[in-house]
Design a protein around this nucleic acid. Sequence first.
DNA 1: TTAGTTAGATGCGTTTTGCTTATAAGACAA
DNA 2: TTGTCTTATAAGCAAAACGCATCTAACTAA
Lengths: 241, 241
Amino acid sequence: MTESEFLTEYDPAVYERPALAVDLVLLGLRAGRPAALLLKREQHPHAGRWALPGGFVGIDQTLDAAALHVLREKAGIAEVHLEQLYTFGALARDPRMRIVSVAYLALLPEAALAEALERAPSLVAARIEVPWSGEAGGDVAAVSAKGEVLPLAFDHADILAMAILRLRGKLDYSDVGFALLPEHFTLRQLQDVHEAVLGTTLNKPAFRRRMLDRGWLAPTGSREAGTSFRPAELYRFQPSR
Amino acid sequence: MTESEFLTEYDPAVYERPALAVDLVLLGLRAGRPAALLLKREQHPHAGRWALPGGFVGIDQTLDAAALHVLREKAGIAEVHLEQLYTFGALARDPRMRIVSVAYLALLPEAALAEALERAPSLVAARIEVPWSGEAGGDVAAVSAKGEVLPLAFDHADILAMAILRLRGKLDYSDVGFALLPEHFTLRQLQDVHEAVLGTTLNKPAFRRRMLDRGWLAPTGSREAGTSFRPAELYRFQPSR
DNA sequence: TTAGTTAGATGCGTTTTGCTTATAAGACAA
DNA sequence: TTGTCTTATAAGCAAAACGCATCTAACTAA
């Protein structure tokens, strides 16, 4: 959009249009590490490689709706944090035809991740390793539970890298961290989420203070159960006062 | 992109595709306030309203290339900071047909902004006002030099809002601020940029210390000229050490 | 020389942060 | 019942960051 001359002269049928798709990074934590849900490609191109779940954008579908559709149909989940990441438009992203893809980031609490794995058996959770090269964030690697490096299809390594980097960047000034936790959680669990995403360890008292001072945490009054030591207070996320 | 079944069954010719465009927020500072370059629409729809310069994405054009093309053709500039902002895909953004638009943010130093106004006489610089509603950032308003509120076309108010918000968010942890300055600049000019973007005043000694400690500033040894008072040291931006 | 103006530096109290240490609360075993 | 183990939570303190007022430097203009 879009100057007048351009559009009035523009006949939609004349110019070939790129196909438009969405790709979803379904991100959660497994064993204290970031993990994404991937699908093994059976057909060419990139048969045998691992891809993000995705789908085309219908002519009467918003981008968000297309992403939600993929979330429901391919992962069997809804009700998770979903945000647009970035749009990838390299010419040869897909060897078959020109496809521009709007990447989305979905954040799954552990339960949602397990549920997705159950409902969609073709999905596999792969640990995502991001070398801490300063801030640049070099090449990511997807690693299976057995420790094998999974080759990624298309430009999906770039998309995964951007997802992790975005998450890292937003973590301590926004409330995205809570999207990876169940409704009730302890401060230690919240810190584990931050440490997993950042790939570092954090100072416990400082982290507690910072989080409590934010005003986002409401104590529930109850405590975690099943520990063999002092149980921690359970908190709820309370959006901005 | 995109599961195998989906794609092999997908015949590009069968499904109607959204048109794909780019829209550019050409942002600079005028008289200490953020300003964007807008075009008055002459034709329907939204004739008489003001729009961001934009254009369609060619089938053999990357998104960045399409944005650069608009930058050169419609504003007569190149060599400015250009980054992808967000992709807008509401169904009725454009009443004529379904157009998905990838928004880009270009940051123009004062000289580039003036140059664009000269080379593309149809462009008008409009001050962008963003109410400081917490962080949410309510409706933006584009205001002409004469103080008139310019009605914006399509969803371009949303795009402008996102541009300003993104800039505010990145300002103090990234180096985007320098993209709005000439090669040599004083600390006061840098502070003016930050104050203009944030819409607040900043503490001078604290700002100086913070900026100098970042290690991004290299003193040139020369000083500004033409002042009727003590001239300030000129600095250069030196990317990350 | 003096007044006016802004650059740049200094000093200091307050707040934030990192880190260490102490106390509290539960399970469990003796 | 009591002591031990483990983690939660709180308290204390030094270092760093920050906000703010003030002081000095450098230049023009009269």
